[in-house]
């Protein structure tokens, strides 16, 4: 279907070969099909974009640790295997195609009115990224500090009252 388009649309840097691969072949992918570095900026607001080294991560983690079964590889997570062992490659791969940006908007919440829907707690995009990235980093010792992956923009500093928006010291306990 339209996987090729998806790839082009979403990624800043991507192996052209993968797009070609996509359109035709039916077998599961491996690291060579994946982009090397991805600039993640679809949510950019309080923080700068994230430079995500995809290639490096494919050496440290299984594709299914991040992509579920969507690449056509059976999931490793045992609570998913029982239903998705034979699930085919998904039509979409980009996290944002399934994990909504406006997770708590009226339309998103209305999807729960469908009693047939099995997955009722699918996190939003921001949640999916952090639960996935920070979750693994906590376990294996990757970066977890808020500014390790993305530096704060002016809007963020304003909200956190940090940097030039820092409160003028009220002479209380130190710690800055």
């Amino acid at each position: 279907m339209s996987q090729g388009k998806n790839v082009q649309r979403t990624l800043c840097i991507i192996a052209v070969g993968s797009a070609l691969f996509w359109s035709g072949l039916g077998y599961a992918m491996d690291a060579s099909d994946a982009p090397e570095v991805i600039t993640m900026d679809s949510l950019e607001n309080h923080y700068d974009p994230v430079e995500f080294n995809h290639l490096e991560h494919t050496e440290m983690a299984a594709c299914t640790d991040c992509h579920h079964h969507t690449l056509g590889i059976p999931p490793t997570n045992e609570s998913c295997v029982k239903c998705h062992e034979n699930s085919p490659e998904a039509d979409v791969l980009s996290c944002g195609d399934c994990h909504l940006t406006d997770r708590f908007g009226i339309e998103a919440l209305a999807t729960l009115d469908d009693p047939q829907l099995y997955h009722r707690g699918t996190p939003g995009l921001k949640g999916a990224y952090h639960l996935n990235c920070v979750g693994c980093h906590q376990e294996v010792g990757g970066p977890i500090g808020c500014e390790d992956c993305h530096t704060m923009k002016d809007a963020g500093k304003k909200m956190f009252k940090a940097g030039k928006y820092a409160p003028v010291s009220k002479g209380e306990k130190g710690g800055h």
Partner: peptide
């Protein structure tokens, strides 16, 4: 972040320390 966002949304007084302290 929730404390910071609340402060901003509700127009509460400046905190003693930045919210990322």
């Amino acid at each position: 972040s929730c404390e910071a966002a609340c402060n901003q949304e509700q127009g509460l007084p400046e905190p003693e320390k930045p919210f990322n302290d």
